[in-house]
């Protein structure tokens, strides 16, 4: 009995690890000061991965987004952290982006890829830890860059920046602080915006014309074997006209108009299985009776925009909700992920 009283507050480190994996990044950085073993634990790469997993799956951050602040002028070095509280977005905090890098190109595991209007200076910035690293594009690469993607390699732990250009593809490794030219494309790609970057792979829609009819094909560059490949579309799409790609919940999503006479009021979405090696599609949702212009693939929820009526709708688990428009939605809404990376 006496022993129990003495040991009453002894919580073993494996339980402390479970508790801390559910704490916020701000608290964890402060708790590094508690003692050496907590500092070691919080800095450990396995712990950082577990914490990220908790952060992605918990309800706590489910409704937090980052939004480029556009209230004052067209150029702003601030991002707003906003919380979606049905049916409104509320600003929680303003975050100043580092070193005047005010354009968000891509994001992965809580880290944002930033640049400025020169597209020469780049930065990786984690708003949770408030840490950043910067790097530049060498002059010799020329200025034909088109699309950017940030990928966190789960095996090496390296953050890679992918840049795809009209006729080549290059990768920056943050670990090695070096650029590599990965591939030169023999043929000109025709890119239909937006190109989508998922799981370290760029997907785009290639359009070819045969007499008077256009044909659409999903093409991707697989960095694992440096080859251009065609991704088979879902079967029986019944689609008419163009197809479009977005990222949704970390997966590639394709949508097209399935209404008659191109009236754009009936749009169907498909989701591809996760990972570049799995090309299986499943039907996700069909949206009817609203004029759809897809604006914000938030990667967690799904915001569609009706330009005629100026309403934004949110799809989560196939349910439509109307959202009050309280800020400018022409800009991208990024999911906020609390991450120690």
């Amino acid at each position: 009995m006496a022993r129990m009283k003495l040991d009453r507050w002894f919580i073993p480190l494996e339980i402390i690890e479970i508790i801390l994996s559910k704490s916020s990044v701000k608290s964890l950085l402060r708790f590094k000061t508690v003692c050496k073993s907590w500092n070691i634990l919080i800095s450990d790469s396995v712990f950082i991965k577990n914490h990220l997993h908790q952060s992605k799956t918990s309800n706590l951050h489910q409704n937090l987004f980052l939004l480029r602040n556009s209230s004052k002028s067209s150029v702003s070095e601030e991002l707003s952290l906003v919380r979606f509280e049905d049916p409104k977005f509320q600003t929680v905090q303003l975050l100043k982006t580092p070193l005047g890098l005010d354009i968000v190109l891509s994001h992965c595991d809580g880290v944002l890829l930033l640049t400025d209007s020169s597209y020469r200076q780049f930065g990786l910035w984690n708003p949770s830890t408030r840490t950043q690293t910067t790097f530049r594009v060498p002059r010799k690469f020329g200025g034909c860059s088109k699309s950017y993607g940030l990928y966190h390699d789960p095996i090496t732990g390296d953050f890679n920046v992918f840049v795809i250009c009209t006729n080549y593809y290059r990768v920056f490794s943050c670990k090695n602080n070096a650029w590599t030219l990965k591939h030169e494309f023999a043929e000109d790609r025709y890119s239909c915006e937006p190109e989508v970057f998922v799981d370290g792979v760029f997907y785009w829609v290639k359009r070819t014309r045969h007499i008077t009819i256009y044909y659409y094909e999903i093409t991707y560059f697989d960095p694992r074997d440096d080859k251009l490949k065609t991704l088979p579309e879902p079967e029986n799409t019944d689609g008419t006209g163009s197809i479009y790609l977005v990222e949704l919940k970390g997966r590639l999503c394709m949508y097209c108009n399935v209404g008659r006479n191109n009236d754009h009021t009936k749009v169907r979405f498909w989701m591809k299985e996760k990972g570049p090696e799995n090309n299986h599609w499943e039907e996700f949702i069909t949206v009817e009776n609203i004029l759809i212009e897809l604006r914000d693939p938030t990667r967690r929820r799904f915001v569609v925009y009706n330009p005629g009526e100026k309403i934004v709708k949110d799809v989560e688990d196939s349910v439509f909700k109307q959202i009050e428009e309280s800020m400018h939605f022409g800009l991208r809404l990024l999911p906020f992920i609390d991450s120690l990376f």
């Binding site: 704490s23 608290s27 000061t33």
Partner: peptide, 22 residues
């Protein structure tokens, strides 16, 4: 974790019975 959210380092040490070894 939620209770600890705004707590000081001293509070955490006391509650968890941790000795400061820095």
């Amino acid at each position: 974790a939620q209770v600890m959210e705004k707590k000081s380092v001293g509070w955490v040490r006391r509650k968890f019975g941790i000795e400061n070894d820095y």
